[in-house]
């Protein structure tokens, strides 16, 4: 009952955020315009086009990537039993960056969708290396090993990217692309990303009770009859798909996967059947409102949403790190 109320409130906050996003921006738009644009869309009306073709897909994209980062973070934290874990630990951000750098260095002027797909190829590539390193290490797979492999891959790809960016002088373009990626999302891209996000969410919901048991401790999970290998594979695949596509679409927005799962656990306890969907909604809320703030605070100048979230995220991370009692 309490959870239903929390869900309803957060969903109302989310929908309000999306509506606010439609309302606020450079062009003057009234509530009536929004209603008209959503209900009787007129392609010849400029205001309708701005609402429907620019602001709505952007707000929805913010919601989808926010949910994807947040749920992926919650899954990573359950699996590693470490409240500081997040999807970036799998090396996927650096893989995406590396492939983007190659694209900008060798194939400039690729359309947005191609860049997204290339980034995602980078995500898959880096995740594959991390998993292979852990799989072929002969010894037991532990969360710590996964994190170490992820850190190594991240350093490797970041260094390669940095070198390429200096050599081909594309650093600024990439920074510019990453900072503004969320603006470039249109309906076409959104419709490509969203079904995969939904598949990822279904996958993690199917293993949600296993994740709860794993978050207790590994011995207990096994003696409760949890299939560890199967659960881990499904969880990692879901993280790579949903967080990977989010990174590819809007660049690495760090800390979402850290902040909202933590807040969610504070509100909703320790059952991942509740934590996963709620952290999805709250992650969407965080990114939608951050995006709104990022483009209204210093309008007409936009600050990158990732920068804004990092401003909240860094102190939050330090606060969390100070509170962690458990070993990795």
């Amino acid at each position: 009952m309490r959870y239903i109320m929390i869900f309803s409130i957060s969903t109302i906050v989310l929908v309000s955020g999306i509506l606010l996003s439609l309302y606020s921006g450079a062009a003057d738009i009234t509530a009536g315009d929004i209603r008209a644009a959503l209900l009787n869309f007129d392609a010849s009306d400029n205001v309708h086009v701005i609402i429907n073709e620019i602001r709505l897909p952007r707000a929805l994209a913010a919601a989808v990537v926010g949910a994807a980062f947040s749920v992926s973070g919650a899954v990573m934290q359950a699996m590693t039993r470490n409240p500081l874990a997040e999807p970036g630990l799998l090396g996927i951000n650096s893989g995406a960056l590396f492939f983007l750098t190659i694209a900008f260095s060798f194939f400039p002027h690729l359309p947005y969708l191609y860049l997204v797909l290339l980034s995602f190829a980078g995500v898959l590539f880096s995740a594959l290396i991390v998993f292979a390193a852990v799989y072929f290490s002969k010894s037991r797979m532990t969360p710590l090993k996964l994190i170490l492999a992820g850190v190594a891959v991240t350093l490797f790809f970041s260094s390669l990217s940095a070198a390429l960016q200096v050599y081909f002088d594309v650093g600024q373009e990439i920074a510019f692309w990453s900072a503004g990626a969320i603006q470039n999302i249109d309906w076409h891209n959104l419709l490509i990303i969203t079904p995969w996000f939904i598949i990822g969410m279904i996958m993690v919901m199917l293993i949600s009770s296993n994740l709860t048991a794993i978050s207790l401790n590994e011995e207990t999970a096994i003696s409760l009859g949890i299939h560890m290998t199967r659960t881990r594979i499904i969880a990692l695949l879901a993280v790579v798909i949903s967080a990977g596509l989010a990174v590819s679409a809007v660049g690495a927005v760090a800390f979402v996967g850290l902040i909202t799962p933590h807040i969610t656990r504070k509100i909703a306890g320790s059952d991942y059947k509740v934590i996963l969907p709620l952290s999805g909604v709250l992650g969407a809320v965080l990114v939608v409102y951050s995006d709104l703030a990022a483009r209204s605070l210093f309008a007409p100048v936009e600050i990158p949403v990732a920068v804004l979230i990092a401003l909240i995220g860094v102190p939050f991370f330090l606060y969390l790190a100070g509170r962690v009692r458990h070993e990795i």
Partner: peptide
Amino acid sequence: LLPQMSNAPDG
């Protein structure tokens, strides 16, 4: 199985 002492998640 009752394992050796382990911590439970907060809350």
